Computed example of a mutant assay.
Amino acid sequence: MKPSAVRTTTTTALAASLVAVLALAGCAKGEVEASSDTATAGGRDQVVASPTAGSGETCTVEEFGGKKLDLAGATVGFSQSEKEANPFRIAETASIKAEAADRGVELLTANAQSQFSKQISDVQDLITKGADLLVIAPLNSDGWGPVLRSAAAKKIPIVTIDRKINATACKDYVSFIGSDFVQQGERAADQMIEATGGKGKVAILLGSAGNNVTTERTKGFKDRVAAKAPGLQVVFEQTGDFAREKGQQVTEQLIQSNPDITGIYAENDEMGLGAVGALKGAGKKPGDVKIVTVDGTRNAVQGIVDGWISGVIESNPRFGPLAFATLDAFTRGEKVSQDIVIEDSAYTPENAKADLGKAF
């Protein structure tokens, strides 16, 4: 598996910023090119693929209505959305903290413990404590009005990671950094079609309601299945809230209502691992039900090695280097993309054992 690539619409100035980030992490400048190449930042696997690709929409501090500042002397507030029992969240927070430490930036952190009302109050508290910039991993896409009004009053730039908020880029927030979730769903569908031969009955363990990740991963999967494998029917959809325990509970119900189920698409690894637990409890054997998941955690990749999971689409949680490079470029007055997309790799039965050490 090749290291994940980052597709951005930033100018070459942001590319230079990312080169600097990688250099600080011990990478030589020659490892990164403006067109395409790969390099690893302190094991965090963030690389520049093409700083001129992407949506084309950019934002500057002047357009946002803010002011230039030196990131090294700024205070950054980071709001994590979910309990850090999920390996994705553990890796995500670790990446933010590591990059802040590498840059010598003061970092204030808060964890909403999967409670949206708490996340809103957390971010407002970060603002009160003097955060000059905000990095937010949103629990939900809607309901951010109070935070956006508080940040706007102080002209505090916001970068969101891994989930979008329903607001206006370069007005309410600066940039979104995350995966192409529709494409993740499409790639998961491709793996499911291969695993099942394109025939049978499939269930979807949906992520939590109210965010773009669930909506887009579902759309990508269902549209691709409909287009490429009409013999594969989606017969069951229920939320597992991105949680292992809930994923197991839903799968237990699924086995009762649909004992002839062919495959399960879990919109994150934790729900997929919960599904594995339910299948084991029901006396199923590895491979009896094909499971495809999204994230790239070590336990899920081990599930491929053990035969319980057919494929895992990676969703890279290591946002630290790119988030801080974006903030750095923005606060120096350079153009940054409104949408910065990380290209994700995949784990299959062919590469899972060899690439297990690359999972988080």
Rank of each mutant, 00 (worst) to 15 (best):
A137C: 09
M1A: 15
A131I: 12
D339R: 09
V48E: 04
S345A: 14
R298S: 09
A85F: 06
G320T: 04
A195W: 00
M192W: 03
K129A: 14
F78C: 03
L322D: 03
A169R: 11
V123T: 14
K290V: 00
F330R: 04
T215Y: 14
T218E: 06
R89W: 02
F176W: 12
T262V: 05
S95C: 08
A16K: 14
A300R: 00
V21T: 15
T10V: 15
T93Q: 15
T262C: 04
A49M: 13
Q191I: 06
R44Q: 15
F64P: 01
E92H: 14
I291V: 14
V312C: 08
D125Y: 12
G247Y: 03
G283W: 14
N86P: 00
V336S: 00
Q302W: 02
V336E: 08
S150W: 06
Q46W: 06
Y347F: 15
D190N: 11
N166Q: 11
R7G: 10
L148K: 08
A354G: 01
T60F: 04
A153W: 05
L14I: 12
R244F: 03
T239C: 01
S55H: 03
K164C: 02
K68M: 11
D355T: 10
R298Y: 03
Q191S: 12
I165E: 01
Q119D: 01
S114W: 14
V123E: 01
N268T: 06
V47A: 15
G263H: 03
G231C: 10
F242E: 00
A266Q: 07
L108V: 04
K155V: 05
K353Y: 00
P317K: 14
T326W: 08
A16F: 10
S55P: 00
G43W: 10
G333W: 00
G197R: 10
G130A: 05
G320Y: 08
I96M: 09
G54T: 04
L69H: 03
